[in-house]
Write a protein that binds this DNA or RNA. Structure first.
Length: 635
DNA sequence: TATCACGTAAACAAGA
DNA sequence: CTCTTGTTTACGTGAT
């Protein structure tokens, strides 16, 4: 829809191999904010149908692309201009800003909802009966809550995927600024106000709720719309009151004459927090410090990429949201054993993660779009928030410890990893295993593994000598990788048993998680979970056709699996692929080695990838990619 | 502090 | 001889 704008403009500039270890790790700050317990507990649907809600959703997101510059600077150049920490901080700031814009978009939606609400209410007031009106209002409230929860999940998903995660140590953007929907108490008050049709706004206005201004007068849109929720002075106990973020954002000094890059007395140019007394000083600062130079252009470049990623993500999530709402609309009268409880479960997870995981005590997302699907999964938010920031050496223990399903994580972020020069938060071993297991025959040559890496991750399109060496090293080192001789050479397979043995025995997840793990290890029946995971993943690059036979609808309803292991075991036990071979059989039995690489469908991908998204290719990578293409059709 | 898992680097060998 | 593939060792780092 709107995602095709910038990709073709991204071109790479050849650059030497950078020091791979120069990148630094960012602390897992755990992006946060915005988490809100959904308290929807009603059952009836109101006059405003989900279709109408969808109508509101179909509006374009006002993601600003104003910073896009025709001058193109490659990420390599950017990295030369900016040090990795700078770059990372810059990215994070950009992402926060983009999230803010998304939040504004949602806020606008909410405002429209409330306007609609008011209209409905006014119409209802003319009706003589009060009781139906109450039902309507309840239904409206229900709709609002659902919508807000969905929006929240969307935003949390972005956050979970690291697009907006902000280590608290960065101190650039406090967590409170992250999306904060209207809390139920606010809604209650709003509804009280609407029902009474009396201006009880004073008390609310003191709270600075946007809802109040929206319901009282729509002319206050502009101020609220421009208001940057970014606060540089996070309250220490932001989680104690749900009003805090709202109050914070609405009390900001946004005047019609303000500048989008100016707020809170600070310059909001990425990476710049220069204090400016007033707008004039800021403009002066802007013209002097952020003039058209390499650095500014590079930062615009980063912004472009951020926008692009967010647009892609937003498009996906919007689609998902609409599908979800459409689905809910199909069965409005049912008690909704899945929709409502899902939110509740998700909320429970949220509160748990809030209290258990995050030291800042702020509401944090339990998970992302997968939250309703895998509500019991713990830790993905942590993992994913660290995902983007693990630019340096892989700290894959995160993923291992929290049992992140690499397949689903990869599925949800594969577009990102494919395009962004970000190191995936998985170990080489897990990546290799994933590559092998994705193939129908569960076997790959070394070169095919290389190709998978370069195809799936922009990060592995450079420093080829380093990571290829690491791949070989891992293949040789880990017993879980079994080399099988073939007529045409050797292929590598995965000894799943060994891989599981290699896993750390201690599970930090929930009991359910551990149980699923155990049952998965014991070849238990986790078909539903597995299929749910696959459906959730909707991994387009799963080139194993036998793996994709799932019902996406069922995926919405199942409690997700928690580990790749169960996935793999299910693949094996499903028997849909072939008679299940134990890992030992794989290694000792004459493996049915594929005669021709089942990469016919892969051939197009690297090409398209090169044509559209590969912007991080270096000279060495060009060589690799050149050799990649012929290799795939001759080997 | 010790241990483990992992990433990185490098030496080396075998084969194409 | 060069390159790829594969093995092995060493070392540093972060987590437990």
């Amino acid at each position: 829809m709107m995602v095709e704008s910038a990709s073709e403009t991204i071109r790479s500039t050849p650059s030497g191999q950078n020091g791979v270890s120069s990148l630094t790790n960012q602390p897992d700050g755990g992006g946060g904010g915005g988490g809100r317990e959904g308290a929807a507990s009603g059952e009836a649907n109101g006059e405003m149908s989900p279709v109408e809600l969808l109508h509101f959703q179909q509006q374009q997101v006002p993601v600003s692309v104003a910073m896009m510059s025709p001058q193109m600077i490659t990420p390599q150049q950017m990295q030369q201009i900016l040090s990795p920490p700078q770059l990372q901080a810059l990215l994070q700031q950009q992402q926060a800003i983009m999230l803010q814009q998304l939040q504004e978009y949602y806020k606008k939606q909410q405002e429209q909802l409330h306007l609609q609400l008011l209209t409905q209410q006014q119409a209802g007031k003319q009706q003589p009966k009060e009781q139906p009106l109450g039902n309507k209002q309840l239904a409206f409230q229900q709709q609002l809550l659902q919508m807000q929860q969905l929006q929240q999940q969307h935003l949390l998903n972005l956050q979970r995927q690291g697009l907006v995660s902000l280590p608290p140590g960065q101190g650039t953007v406090p967590l409170q600024t992250l999306p904060q929907a209207v809390c139920p108490s606010d809604l209650q008050q709003l509804w009280k106000e609407v029902t009474a049709a009396q201006p009880v706004e004073d008390s609310i206005k003191q709270e600075g709720l946007d809802l109040t201004t929206n319901t009282s007068n729509s002319t206050s849109f502009s101020a609220a719309k421009v208001s940057p929720p970014i606060s540089h002075h996070p309250l220490p106990n932001g989680q104690s009151t749900m009003h805090t973020p709202r109050r914070d954002s609405s009390s900001h000094e946004e005047t019609p004459g303000s500048h989008p890059l100016y707020g809170h007395g600070e310059c909001k140019w990425p990476g710049c927090e220069t204090l400016c007394e007033d707008l004039g000083q800021f403009v002066k600062h802007l013209n002097t410090e952020h003039a058209l130079d390499d650095r500014s252009t590079a930062q615009c470049r980063v912004q472009m990429q951020v926008v692009q990623q967010l647009e892609i993500q937003l498009a996906k999530e919007s689609e998902r949201l609409q599908a979800m709402m459409a689905h809910l609309h199909m069965r409005p009268s049912e008690p909704k054993p899945f929709s409502q409880p899902l939110n509740l479960v998700s909320s429970a997870t949220l509160s748990k993660s809030t209290s258990d995981t995050f030291p800042d005590g702020l509401p944090h997302p339990p998970t992302s779009a997968t939250a309703p699907i895998t509500p019991l999964r713990q830790g993905p938010s942590v993992i994913s928030s660290s995902t983007l920031h693990n630019v340096g050496p892989i700290r894959r223990r995160n993923s291992e410890k929290f049992c992140t399903p690499i397949s689903s994580e990869l599925a949800q972020n594969h577009e990102f990893y494919k395009n962004a020069d970000v190191r995936p938060p998985f170990t080489y071993a897990s990546l290799i295993r994933q590559a092998i297991l994705e193939t129908p025959d569960r076997q790959l040559t070394l070169n095919e593994i290389y190709n998978w890496f370069t195809r799936m991750f922009a990060y592995f399109r450079r420093n080829t000598a380093t990571w290829k060496n690491a791949v070989r090293h891992n293949l040789s080192l880990h017993k879980c990788f079994v080399r099988v001789e073939n007529v045409k050479g050797a292929v590598w397979t995965v000894d799943e048993h060994e891989y599981q043995k290699r896993r750390p025995p201690k599970m930090t997840g929930s009991p359910t998680l551990v149980k699923n793990m155990i049952s998965g290890l014991g070849y238990g029946a986790l078909n539903a979970s597995y299929q749910a995971a696959l459906a959730e993943s909707s991994f387009p690059l799963l080139n194993s056709p036998t793996m994709i036979n799932t019902s996406s609808a069922s995926g919405m309803l199942h409690v997700g699996h928690d580990d790749v292991s169960s996935t793999v075991e299910q693949v094996n036990s499903n028997g849909s692929n072939s008679p299940r071979l134990s890992p030992q059989q794989y290694s000792s039995h004459p493996v049915h080695v594929k005669e021709e690489p089942a990469e016919a469908e892969d051939d197009s991908r690297p090409v398209s990838l090169l044509a559209t998204t590969n912007q991080n290719v270096t000279i060495a990578d060009d060589r690799d990619l050149e050799e990649e293409l012929p290799v795939e059709d001759l080997s």
